[in-house]
Amino acid sequence: MVTRPAPPLPYAIADDLRARITTGRLKPDERLPSEAQLAAHYRVSTPTLRNALSVLQGEGLIEKIHGKGNFVRRRLHQVTYVGGGHMAIDRDAARVTLRVTVRTTKIWARGDLASLLKVPLHSPLTELRCVGYEGDSPHSLIRFYVPRDLAPANTSAELPCWGSVEASLAERRPALADTEEKVGARLPTRGEAAALRISTALAILAITRVSTDITGRVAEAAHLVLPGDRANALFTTHRMTAERLAQR
């Protein structure tokens, strides 16, 4: 009879906590015991316990809220990015309460932003850092960068939806003519992981969007970040059929 070696301690602890979550003994939004209490319960050091928690964070089962502790993560609805800054949330099961928090900061164009916006270095810009929430859980992060003369005159600290943010941005600029979007996957920065309450080991869907107005000026650049475990990107191509071509 072959005896399998016991898994390393962090994975054994993660297995036990995972079982408690999946069987409902630990319920969504429930706060886990403190790290010190868990370390004492499993008779391990705090670093070993944190390694176990990081495994569950990477799987999306728990989230760490700064200053409050570790919580069982509620299953969030899927976010589908459909292009042009538009996002749809699957509302299949229950009524979803959405909101967007906005923080506005005056900045100066550094190398990458100067290149994206096609402006000289140190040009005055405004950054709008927006976090979308489903209930109390963050589901998306977008950082908008606009020339300061096109920045919204008044932007509330909290808005009901992403459409409200777009409407604020559209107030002072000409109509947009072209939008170019680049989509990729990568690991989040520490700041992005903290904003979305995800592990730095969980991949994100990263979208860079640059919009040009009808005068040919770059009116807006945006960096969108969506957690990879609950985000999709949908792109639709409309082709001209022979019948439609004949009608033109």
Rank of each mutant, 00 (worst) to 15 (best):
S115N: 13
S168R: 14
P174A: 05
Y42R: 08
I62H: 02
I142Q: 06
Q37G: 12
I62C: 04
R148S: 14
P174G: 05
G135Y: 09
H66C: 07
L76H: 06
G163N: 06
L56I: 09
G85E: 05
L61V: 02
G85F: 07
I62V: 09
E158Y: 08
A157K: 11
H122C: 03
L117A: 06
Q37V: 12
C130L: 12
L128F: 11
E63S: 03
A170R: 09
G60I: 10
V119L: 00
T105I: 08
A167S: 09
R73S: 02
A151W: 09
L159N: 11
P160E: 03
D136F: 03
L141D: 03
Y133K: 09
E134H: 07
E134M: 13
H122K: 08
T101C: 10
D136G: 09
P152A: 02
L141K: 04
A151S: 05
G58H: 00
H122M: 08
A93K: 12
N154Y: 15
Y42E: 04
G83I: 03
S123N: 02
G135L: 10
N154S: 15
T104E: 14
G163I: 04
A175C: 11
R91E: 15
R173D: 10
S137G: 11
W108H: 12
A153H: 12
A153K: 14
H86W: 00
N51K: 14
I107C: 03
G67S: 01
I107F: 04
T126A: 05
A39D: 02
S168V: 07
H86Y: 01
R99N: 06
S156I: 01
H66M: 10
P152W: 06
D92Q: 14
A94P: 13
A175V: 13
P120K: 09
V55I: 14
H122E: 08
E166T: 04
W108T: 10
Q57S: 11
Y42G: 07
T104L: 15
A153T: 15
L121R: 07
K64E: 07
Q37E: 15
L98A: 05
R95D: 15
H122P: 02
R110N: 04
L117G: 05
S54Y: 00
R129F: 12
S54T: 01
S156R: 13
G85Y: 10
L98T: 06
K106C: 03
H66Y: 11
G85H: 12
R148T: 13
S54R: 04
P147T: 02
W108C: 07
E171G: 03
V72C: 02
W108F: 11
T155R: 05
G85A: 08
G58L: 00
Y42A: 08
S164E: 15
C130V: 10
V79Q: 05
S54N: 03
G132D: 04
L121P: 03
T105S: 07
E127W: 06
